[in-house]
């Protein structure tokens, strides 16, 4: 039971991190026409954050404790 609770709480934390990353004001910081490696910074930010969230969820689910 405890394991479920801890895992649930980690996932809730990830949810809030995601909400933070994908909303004003953090999002606005990257809203520029600048580019990195030929790719708009906003795109890099959005997709990288997205991937990080997925990886975090993967880890949270995999972790035993």
């Amino acid at each position: 039971m405890n394991r479920f609770v801890i895992r649930g709480q980690r996932l809730i934390a990830i949810f809030f991190i995601g909400c933070l990353l994908f909303n004003y004001p953090l999002l606005s910081l990257f809203s520029t026409t600048g580019m990195l490696w030929g790719i708009p910074i906003l795109y890099i930010y959005a997709f990288t954050s997205w991937l990080i969230i997925i990886v975090l969820m993967f880890i949270a689910i995999k972790l035993r404790h």
Partner: peptide, 13 residues
């Protein structure tokens, strides 16, 4: 698509 991604985290509950 971001919405479902975040919601998925809450799915566990």
């Amino acid at each position: 698509y971001l919405g479902p991604t975040l919601m998925a985290a809450l799915w566990y509950l």
